[in-house]
Design a protein around this nucleic acid. Structure first.
Lengths: 206, 206
DNA sequence: CTGTGTGAAGGCTTTCACAGCC
DNA sequence: GGCTGTGAAAGCCTTCACACAG
């Protein structure tokens, strides 16, 4: 039962499976084979089956998995982790875009507020979310028990802002700044570096 | 010499090292130890040293690496892969933001044009880049020998657009749509799924 | 004594092969 | 016959331990 034994990469793929399943659900299919679901999720069938056995067995041999039941199992494992309130720090180009990006809300994350040096009402109206000055950061995190933050500030101030976030109680950071944040062990950071993704891609086309 | 033997993950980290080095270069340091550079890049020192030995040995025992020389080596390996022309398809919220994002240009990628169903001159002026209708996609790719594309269209049309890209000759796609693209073996896809990154983060804070 | 280079060991994931069930 | 569940094998990376150079 303990989540702790589920490998990191497996957890990541569980999200992929859940997504793929949702698409199938709208397609009215009652059942999926590991082969079909695996293809939709971009992995090998055996990998999917092994991943699922980390937390039980709910397939029917000869038939596949019940879309309904598997979906429920996945929400049980990932489910409690969704619907988290999140804040965004740094409402520049990228930050502003992410605020307008429907993908977060669609997957159950609500961005409660954005923080920026320039916090004006006009900006708030533009972005459709509360925009507060950086001075209110700690207070807001404490009051709303925020655990997750999206960090879209320039690289040069990222570490400093991260320190503030951690001090205020944030435990997870989705970091878009192109630097490695130094944080305590109990804080998790996922880095998204778009330039590096492009660079990496280009390497593999010779 | 052959790039082919450099592991995927190593290539990815080379970009991290290069970034970290650039920061040190502005700091006027002439030399770095593997320990210092590794910390800046968020990896273990032994890992960095092993990564570097895949394409030579240019450290000085007892001293460290020459910032200058190592930087040059890294550009030699990654360098030819930079300065690639790129197009962006889907100038919605996320796409528009990426066009304004200075990170790509800073790392040597020029976005030559954006493609969207709604291609107006006003839009082009707003975004600071040529915006063309989807009907011109294939032609443009062919004429400009484009090999890389950033895909920021809605999930439901992503596969269809990807097919067009591949057919026109694109070999690498940075995909932001939350689906797994089915492409031929000679085409590389890197997926960036922001909602999954958040979901994954939240799992690890219990 | 500091810090690199590297074979060997270790650990983690993925894949295989096939037994078992519908 | 079709498809899942899973121990065993293989593969891939990371880390260790230490020889070696400045």
């Amino acid at each position: 039962m303990s989540k702790l034994v589920i490998p990191r990469k497996t957890v990541y793929r569980l999200s992929l499976y859940y997504r793929a399943l949702q698409r199938l659900r709208t397609g009215k299919m009652a059942t999926v084979s590991s082969a079909a679901l695996a293809k939709a999720a971009g992995v090998k069938a055996t990998q999917l089956r092994k991943d699922l056995t980390y937390f039980g067995q709910f397939g029917t041999r000869g038939l596949g998995y019940s879309v309904e039941a598997l979906g429920k199992q996945l929400t049980d494992v990932l489910g409690t982790t969704r619907l988290q309130p999140v804040i965004l720090v740094g409402a520049g180009n990228l930050g502003a875009a992410l605020l307008r990006y429907p993908g977060f809300a669609k997957e159950g994350f609500e961005v409660l507020a954005a923080f920026d040096l320039k916090a004006t009402k006009t900006r708030a109206r533009e972005l459709g979310v509360k925009v507060l000055p950086m001075t209110k950061l700690g207070e807001f995190i404490g009051e709303h028990h925020i655990k997750m933050a999206i960090l879209t500030v320039p690289g040069v101030v990222a570490q400093e802002v991260a320190n503030q976030l951690v001090e205020a109680g944030v435990l997870a950071v989705l970091n878009f700044a192109p630097i490695i944040l130094q944080v305590p062990d109990n804080v998790v950071v996922n880095n998204v570096d778009l330039a590096i993704e492009l660079e990496n891609l280009s390497y593999f086309i010779q």
